[in-house]
Design a binder for these strands. Structure first.
Lengths: 339, 339
DNA sequence: GTTAGCACTCTTTGCCTTTCAGTGCCAACT
DNA sequence: AGTTGGCACTGAAAGGCAAAGAGTGCTAAC
């Protein structure tokens, strides 16, 4: 069955109202504030029809209506007005990115922070690394008898958190030439190519085998394990929203959101090509129950910068969240292009 | 006024009981479970005396007694039995540290995690860097036209998160020789000496002044800004404790605990020489209200490894927390010494 | 110094009533 | 056929009240 225009309008009003007030919406409040041209009885029958169709529900026979998950989905896809950022908000985003060294991690952190502040929800972010980075330089930097820091410069990032073991009997010169060899072999290749290249390398340079393996391990670890780059901001913001007033719900939310692995899963599973992606309710098992997740993947040209998201109650201010995510995206893009 | 032995015993019972049950303790429960040799009336008069002295209070005229902050202080300093870890707990700590690359950050993270798991409280940790590290090697690693990663190996750590700007007109060779110069000048010095040495350097090597300044800035930034190395684990654990059932308290706690700066302050302010340090209640303004903080500073020889802490309600299981912190300390020490 | 006994206090719980917001339905109206 | 005013009905929320229960403080006797 198709929704009449009036039903759509009423549904939109209900969702809007519920989002701002967190209270069931009554027929009376609708006619008083939005639809003075009809009586509450009329709206009541429309509400009953919308309930019949699964878009609304009541907590008890004599309460107002509350949107269902279906209603939220329809709301974001069709009903919702597009929000616009105020000048103040825009300048807040800009200043957040102002003092910045062009270091990707810092960009991610700042973005997460400003998103959380502007939306008043918990925000999460993960820097993109899908294995398509092209290796520009690899450096093995020894710092203890038997350990070295592996530094990899790619066209997008500087990887500097992988440690490798150095065989005890290896001299500095040998390490140096292993380093040169690694560079010669891997320079210009994409990370994922290197991961697959492990077998080929094995036979050729037996003496540096240990180093080789470590480098390849470290790279595949980087590509596969995305949880390292996860950023979480404003985890306390969730407490501003009444649906988490009960400790149990709160706890459930926090336990999911404080696990970097789970966040990484949320942000990386699913379609990455879509610019803005909205998951409502427990659609995906990764997302905490009764939560919505709005994510945006930012790119500069064809290079992905990262995925950012806002996580909060079903009754989320989608309008605001989306405009903030879009605003941040635009400013990020400007920044990257200017360089 | 001095406390009689019986008063001490009763006070200990009250605190123990209250810690485990979170319920006001009655005279009857004391005689039934712990002191069958006297009547509840006797205990009642003792309780009244202890209340008079400020160690106990009642929520209302006909409720049991609850310990005051003073009582907790006395409890941890004199009354409390020493806890012992079970074999299971010990082995849990050991396995937590088992697979480990000797990288300090990872040690800190693992320690925080296992402490949080065993105690069921939120744990925090900060790796020590007080400026006493001796510089062993400095390397300037260029990775973009105008930016380089500054790598500093000290006797305790590898600093690898400081970026410096490279003047546009500087050639690779110049950078190389700047690097050599920095090494020659700073090697063997302590970080804090380098910070103070800035003026001296200025006049001598004008051409590398920019690089110099950046290096010195980065080092003093590292020494002063401790918030970078802060680790927080089990922030959701706090919800397991009834005193945080109300959203306001919860929120207050979370907002403090999710700020790395504030945590760094908590862990670094105060006497660092003491092995285990207990702050109860709002003694320090850094600590959230109605919270206790138990910290331990671990060292290997005379080198500090870091400070670890547990933060939770006043009604904290101090016995367990302290034995866990001590257990972790012992195992850490063993690990470092074995190397 | 200890104790049994008792009066007293305060919270907790259940129960009842009232109030109120909101709905559903129906007959009348346009 | 759609809209509306009127009205009965429902369930939550709030208030009042009594009974039960947990604890205490006090006192007189041991």
């Amino acid at each position: 069955m198709k929704l009449s225009d009036r039903k759509k309008k009423i549904l939109q009003i209900v969702v809007d109202e519920y989002i701002t007030n967190a209270q069931p919406v009554s027929s009376k409040s609708i006619t008083q504030n939005y639809m003075k041209d009809v009586s509450s009885a009329t709206v009541r029958s429309e509400l009953a029809a919308l309930e019949e169709m699964g878009y609304l529900s009541q907590l008890h026979t004599s309460s107002g209506r509350v949107p269902s998950i279906e209603a939220y989905k329809l709301y974001v896809s069709e009903l919702m007005d597009k929000g616009r950022l105020t000048g103040k908000e825009l300048s807040q985003i800009k200043t957040a990115f102002a003092r910045q060294s062009g270091n990707l991690e810092e960009v991610v952190k700042n973005a997460a922070k400003v998103i959380s502040e502007l939306t008043d929800y918990t925000s999460i972010a993960v820097a993109a690394h899908d294995g398509d980075d092209v290796i520009e330089k690899i450096s093995i930097f020894p710092f203890k008898e038997d350990t070295a820091l592996l530094l990899i410069v790619t066209d997008r990032a500087l990887i500097r958190d992988k440690f490798i073991d150095i065989p005890a009997d290896m001299t500095d010169e040998q390490l140096e030439s292993a380093n040169r060899l690694v560079n010669r072999m891997f320079k210009g290749k994409r990370l994922c190519e290197v991961m697959d290249a492990s077998l080929e390398a094995e036979s050729q340079f037996e003496s540096y085998r240990a180093i080789f393996d470590c480098v390849i391990d470290a790279i595949s670890d980087y590509v596969n394990n995305k949880s390292g780059d996860v950023v979480l901001e404003g985890e306390d913001k969730i407490l501003n929203h009444p649906e988490y007033a009960e400790v149990d719900k709160m706890k459930n939310f926090l336990s999911v959101v404080t696990s970097r692995d789970k966040i990484a899963n949320m942000l990386t599973s699913g379609e990455n090509d879509i610019e803005i992606n909205i998951k409502i309710g427990g659609e995906s098992s990764d997302i905490p129950e009764d939560c919505s997740l709005v994510t945006a993947t930012y790119s500069a040209g064809d290079v992905k910068l990262g995925t950012y998201g806002v996580i909060g109650p079903l009754r989320m201010d989608y309008q605001k969240v989306i405009s903030v995510l879009e605003g941040v995206g635009k400013i990020l893009e400007d920044m990257v292009n200017k360089k």
